[in-house]
Design a protein around this nucleic acid. Structure first.
Lengths: 217, 217, 217, 217
DNA sequence: CATGAATGAGCTTTCATTCAT
DNA sequence: CATGAATGAAAGCTCATTCAT
């Protein structure tokens, strides 16, 4: 499953890597380990074993166990920030009519695309939504920063849509949070039941729900 | 040492009662401690100190630290189950028209009432939403059971509303989860920012959102 | 040899002690261990084994390993301070003639008595003169304080003797230090050669030397 | 094992010299480091950094960390041995009268000269008197050897002076040790207070003290 | 030869749990 | 029942030493 585990053929043979590479590899293993068992249940030895390195090696790249989690959270935060920054601003096509199916489809597409990138990696989703939670104050803050980032994107979209008259005036921040929470819950239920995250479907359903509400026409 | 007054005469029933009381008191302290610092950051000694008892005493009421959390989670689950069981089935008033403001108001009222009881206690909310998360497999299951319970109620409501033609046909479970996730996120954002949980407002906003969606009319 | 080691009959049986007693016992064992092998060569486990206690027990009485040494040094400092405080001021007997044998004898007696109490315990001497040295900044300071204390006493004696005209005017502090250094070196040479510290003889010799000098009459 | 041999063609002497130079340089850095922070507080990495070499390089010149200290101690021992060997035997000038000022002055000069060379270098003094102490059995022995050497010189002087009738008969070894101890203590007090070692003054004071004693005439 | 990434034995320290009092 | 001193498994972490490059 994992490319990270050391080949068992040449036991106890040292492997040399470039610093950056090794760091990434350790983070990969930490991601795996933390996502599988949670932060506290994972020992430093666990992570090292997965990476096929000695205990001391890890401490050449990270201050301590907490720093490992912080670094991991920051890597995730960085990636999401990149995504967010690269994302084009919402451009409402001319003549798009609100309430129409077109509007729903349009919203759907944007979210499917966005959420796909964020939640496509199950391990990362696990760390963001479960493993990292409550483990440590600093980490919590980073996770919250990630959250703010993502929510901020949705918020911006909402604002633009309101300006364009597609969406009715509302508290964008609150709605963005609500939406994000709903999606996260659906993702979480996948994780909890060990179902694969069908993020495309989730995003699609969520978008419809959000757009139309639940009332009968 | 104990604040619970000493009554040496006829101890039998009272002792039992005392024991139960003591157990409750310990759980109260555990709730407090866990909600403040999280499960792993809280030591058994911490809980005992709050309860004003010796370390050993706690172990006469609980198997181990995990059992303490399990018991706490079960107490919460029990309380919510009670709520759920006491809750009257959804009775759609005759002649209620879908899409109308009346329908929205009706839904709102039901949810405000329900969510208020679940999230009114901040400490409990903290344990359900943060402290207990990822602490332990068994506890996770209990929390999930609580969740299922709550989601189940919403689901049932939805089903009834669909049958009554107020709500359009949809995947009730998914929608219930989405709704619950949205509300939880809003509650969480209060906890994270140390704002009081204005559950009434949250429930109200969430209900409108869910009913009408976000699209302009 | 040592009264401290646990009786081997009832293995792994817990022993309970009063806090103060246990603390003293641990300090006794630490004294033994540090004096035998030096601070760095001694592991916390060593000390615990000698005391017949579990590792954790030590940490109920001392912050960490360093704190153990600090406490030990402070205990020694306290004892010496007590000695010093109890020591009567130098009273020059009337009509004592300088340069005479009586003066030498008088000085001798005072020092023999004083140094005996300080250096009679070999283990303590070892810690003061060897094991504690350079182990840690804080400990160094305490040891220096002990030193200052002892040197201060000699200094005071010298001053009184100068005032009485028995001793010629000189830099009392410097001379006191020189004297103390000389004595310590003699004690050290006993420790190094595993000879018992014949402090009486050392003090006697040192006093003569200091009083008369080495020149032929 | 040793890097010192190796003589292929013309490079021989230079290579040899380079290796020896490098060794010396490492020892210099070790001296610096050990004297500043003590043996245990100094890491191998620290020494290497000061020397501007990689960690592995050090191990081509020294077996291990202890060997580094041993080598350092031996270098110091060697230098002192050289000093001692070069030192002319005590020649009592004809007609020197005991107890006279001349005798004191004579003794003074000899000691000032001798001690100056031993303690002039503060870093070395620190290692001999503090850093090396109690660090390791083998090193302790070397330091003791140095001590014996120095004490031996004083002892020999004393013996000669006794033979010449300048100094009264006494236990030369004991007196030499006492004297050395006294001087060391004075030097130590400089180190502890971060005062420069005014060895000339110390030696002078010590010599007077030793010669005349403290009693009033 | 030089390097510094990699190593892991060994140590300190924590804390849930036990048990003599 | 209650206690809290005692426990020791288990974890984190350090750093002298090795070795592939």
């Amino acid at each position: 499953m994992s490319v990270l585990v050391q080949e068992p053929s040449s036991r106890s043979r040292r492997t040399y890597k470039r610093a950056a590479e090794r760091r990434e590899q350790i983070l990969d293993c930490a991601l795996e380990a933390f996502s599988e068992s949670g932060y506290h249940q994972t020992s430093v030895a666990d992570v090292c074993q997965r990476a096929g390195i000695g205990r001391g090696t890890l401490y050449q790249y990270f201050e301590d166990k907490r720093d490992l989690l912080v670094a991991l959270a920051e890597r995730i935060a960085g990636r999401i920030t990149d995504l967010v920054d690269k994302r084009p601003r919402l451009q409402i096509p001319d003549g798009l009519k609100p309430t129409g199916d077109e509007a729903v489809a349009f919203i759907q597409d944007r979210f499917v695309e966005f959420l796909t990138v964020i939640f496509e990696d199950e391990a990362t989703a696990r760390v963001i939504l479960k493993a990292g939670r409550g483990a440590d104050g600093v980490v919590d803050q980073i996770l919250r920063r990630i959250d703010e980032r993502v929510v901020g994107v949705i918020e911006a979209d909402l604002r633009a849509a309101i300006d364009a008259g597609i969406v009715r005036p509302l508290d964008e921040r609150l709605v963005a949070r609500f939406f994000m929470g709903g999606v996260e819950k659906l993702v979480l239920s996948c994780l909890d039941d060990d179902r694969p995250i069908d993020i495309e479907n989730i995003a699609r359903e969520a978008a419809v729900l959000e757009a139309r509400g639940i009332l009968a026409d």
